[in-house]
Design a protein around this nucleic acid. Structure first.
Lengths: 140, 140
DNA sequence: TACTAAATAAGAATCATTATCTTTAAAGAT
DNA sequence: ATCTTTAAAGATAATGATTCTTATTTAGTA
């Protein structure tokens, strides 16, 4: 299965453990930018003895090694995103759904704008759009 | 002093208490989008008996009544902003400084862009830019 | 001045996240 | 295949911001 993932761990000098594999698979499976808690719940069925601290530690390790990104919401809970390329997020405050939003043209537009209108006393490193609103109900 | 503030409280049917006045003044004084803790520390000198819970409750009340806005950072701590008009934030991850950033032209640019390029399955309510980078050192 | 609802104080409780410390198990060397 | 080394996992205590609870106080009004 995720041979690529195992190789990435090895590249960074990280050991390939069943926990790490399970946690990474859980994030891919869960899709909606899961919380640590979501991940623990999901894993518990196949991996009943996994420790809460381990999950947090593994998630941190992944973030440090650019295998994951942390996403912050209105609530005080971290969520995790396996989508590594530079992108924005769509937030629904009612349902807590978060979806990735990628738009290269928009990035260029904003990039150009700031090239022409520098902010005085500030060097920009990164710009993220936090787009809040409502998902239109689809006939799931 | 903040007669306007007192009137605003009354308009909303909120009682004018010394605690509420002190907290609001503290936020104006502190400027750098203070945390609840910053506010408590600041107030303690004139108001040694103020209770932590009160500060949090008052801040919530202010946010609910549009007297303040909550600002979320990378860290798990809420900060508060007395600046009510629609604006973005400049973040410095090194120093935790946050400054307000207002740019009507930029808002129009982005608004126009999304009018032309609707996101399917999503109705936008609000767009916030989270601009991270470094403040250029000024000779304080 | 007294009344009543709202606000405050004090401190316990919560909950996500971290830290500690011991045990276990990858991964490379023998 | 076994040994060794060291990172990783497990268990659980600790932390720290925020919320909750309950008794007491006070602002605004009759």
């Amino acid at each position: 299965m995720s041979k690529v993932f195992r190789e990435k761990l090895q590249e960074k000098g990280l050991k390939v453990t069943p926990q790490r594999v399970a946690i990474f698979e859980a994030i891919l499976e869960l899709e909606n930018h899961p919380t640590a808690d979501d991940i623990i719940a999901f894993i518990k069925t196949n991996h009943p003895n996994i420790s809460v601290g381990t999950v947090y530690k593994v998630l941190d390790t992944f973030v440090e090694n650019n295998l994951l990104k942390k996403v912050k919401t209105e609530k005080d809970i971290m969520r995790y995103d396996p989508h590594l390329s530079n992108h924005h997020h769509l937030y629904c405050s009612e349902t807590d759904r978060i979806e990735d939003f990628e738009d290269e043209k928009l990035n260029e537009l904003i990039g150009d704008y700031f090239n022409k209108h520098k902010i005085k006393n500030f060097n920009i490193q990164d710009i993220k759009l936090q787009i809040t609103g409502k998902f239109k109900k689809s006939l799931t």
